[in-house]
């Protein structure tokens, strides 16, 4: 690791002030991506701003027809939480399938969403469930949040404080995971919401995306069979040593069917 200074702010405002005053400072949540990145010398921040001691960023609460999850809430907490498990079991299952137990004890939902890894699970939840990303200064619709490979709508210095998930009628998540890293080779969240069906795909492209043809088919009939013959164009998808774009395109349909079957 390169050297950096260490800041331990005691409020969101303090953290934002440090990040705004120093373009090269970087916030660290659980650090499950950032620390490996630093170890490989792929990043050289001037300072790490540790959100671990900032109060008010953890916890899960029911807010009417939505769940509000603090940005520093760990994957293990989301996966085990009784409210999430009963109100939004697809999200509990998604969180419980990230990495491994020790990673889930440190990794946070806000960190995952802010990092916008193309193979991360949380982007599928944010977009697939039509969530809202709450920051220190505004609310951003999930559909507008992810703007590209590791890119989001966050401004410099802007911090995610919570995620708000409207409760769907039913939802399911299925992923084909890389057996070594447990990242999604392809992950699909399917949700039946008040505004209709949403289908969001992570792992396959440079950023999470929705599949309109699948949403229309599932709006007509919420069955795995309704997805028969519907596939995404491989032209825009990722190819790497784990899977070709064509294989990923095939997996999108398979995972979408499994997500429909898992929906509850």
């Amino acid at each position: 690791m390169y050297t950096f200074s260490y800041q331990k702010p005691s409020s969101v405002a303090d953290a934002v002030a440090v990040l705004t005053g120093d373009d090269d400072a970087k916030a660290v949540a659980g650090g499950m991506t950032l620390i490996p990145t630093l170890k490989q010398r792929l990043a050289q921040p001037s300072a790490l701003v540790d959100l671990g001691s900032v109060p008010g960023l953890t916890g899960i609460r029911r807010d009417g027809d939505a769940l509000v999850i603090g940005a520093m809430t760990t994957h293990a907490t989301v996966a085990a939480d009784a409210t999430v498990r009963s109100a939004l079991p697809a999200l509990a299952a998604l969180a419980g399938g990230i990495g491994d137990p020790a990673v889930r004890h440190r990794g946070t939902c806000g960190g995952s969403v802010a990092n916008a890894d193309p193979a991360a699970d949380y982007p599928a939840a944010v977009v697939g469930l039509g969530a809202t990303v709450i920051t220190d200064r505004r609310e951003i619709a999930g559909d507008d949040f992810f703007t590209g490979l590791f890119e989001t709508a966050l401004e410099p210095g802007e911090l995610i404080t919570a995620l708000r998930f409207p409760l769907p009628k039913r939802a399911g998540y299925a992923k084909f995971r890389n057996p070594a890293s447990r990242y999604a080779v392809v992950g699909v969240m399917v949700a039946e919401t008040a505004a209709g069906i949403r289908v969001a795909v992570t792992g396959a492209g440079p950023s999470v995306f929705r599949v309109a043809a699948m949403e229309q088919a599932l709006n007509a009939s919420f069955t795995a069979a309704a997805l028969e013959g519907i596939s995404v164009d491989a032209g825009d998808l990722n190819t790497d040593l784990h899977a070709s774009a064509e294989y990923r395109a095939h997996l999108v349909t398979v995972m979408a069917r499994r997500a429909v079957e898992a929906a509850r």
């Binding site: 260490y6 331990k8 660290v28 650090g31 499950m32 620390i35 490996p36 790490l48 540790d50 671990g52 137990p101 020790a102 990673v103 004890h105 440190r106």
Partner: peptide, 11 residues
């Protein structure tokens, strides 16, 4: 349980 190779001492 956490991975101490992926946690900073300051954390």
């Amino acid at each position: 349980s956490v991975k101490s190779c992926t946690t900073l001492a300051v954390q």
